[in-house]
Simulated assay, not measured.
Amino acid sequence: MEAILKYFIDNKEWIFSGLGIFIIGGIISLIKYVINRNKKTSKKTMKQINTDNSSGTQIGIQNNYYQTGDKNDQ
């Protein structure tokens, strides 16, 4: 641990200059990429079923009319 602290103290100008920050940021990004690439993400999709003469067009926002506990419920 002392060796790491001594290295940072001796090289603080280089580490905190633009190049040092760029390299440290790249290393952190690489670590995050390696950690997150194995996580499986689930994609939520909605399928619209069109029957008869329905065109399947949705206008506006998705509303949940059956939600309870909203302040505006009457």
Results as ranks from 00 to 15, higher is better:
11 N>F: 10
66 Y>W: 08
45 T>K: 08
35 I>S: 01
64 N>R: 05
5 L>Q: 12
8 F>E: 13
60 G>L: 00
6 K>R: 15
44 K>P: 00
52 D>P: 00
21 I>H: 11
12 K>N: 15
12 K>E: 14
6 K>Y: 14
13 E>S: 08
51 T>W: 08
32 K>E: 11
66 Y>S: 05
70 D>W: 00
46 M>Y: 07
28 I>T: 13
55 S>N: 14
72 N>E: 06
34 V>A: 04
1 M>P: 03
5 L>K: 15
73 D>F: 02
71 K>I: 03
13 E>K: 13
67 Q>D: 02
40 K>M: 08
49 I>H: 04
20 G>K: 03
33 Y>S: 08
25 G>D: 10
63 N>V: 05
23 I>Q: 09
27 I>E: 02
53 N>P: 00
11 N>W: 10
74 Q>L: 09
25 G>T: 15
44 K>W: 00
1 M>C: 06
59 I>N: 03
8 F>W: 12
42 S>G: 01
68 T>H: 05
62 Q>E: 05
20 G>Q: 04
26 G>A: 05
3 A>D: 15
55 S>T: 12
65 Y>V: 02
8 F>P: 01
48 Q>I: 12
12 K>M: 13
31 I>M: 03
66 Y>L: 07
52 D>R: 12
57 T>A: 13
18 G>Q: 14
69 G>C: 14
24 I>E: 06
31 I>E: 01
47 K>F: 03
41 T>R: 10
35 I>P: 00
12 K>F: 08
48 Q>W: 09
59 I>V: 14
65 Y>W: 05
67 Q>A: 10
54 S>E: 11
50 N>T: 06
1 M>Y: 07
21 I>T: 08
1 M>Q: 04
47 K>Q: 09
62 Q>H: 02
72 N>S: 10
40 K>Q: 12
43 K>M: 05
17 S>I: 06
39 K>E: 09
66 Y>R: 02
16 F>T: 15
71 K>E: 04
46 M>T: 13
41 T>W: 01
64 N>K: 02
58 Q>P: 00
39 K>H: 05
68 T>V: 09
26 G>N: 12
19 L>C: 12
24 I>G: 03
17 S>V: 06
66 Y>K: 02
66 Y>D: 04
11 N>D: 13
10 D>G: 05
28 I>M: 06
6 K>H: 11
58 Q>L: 12
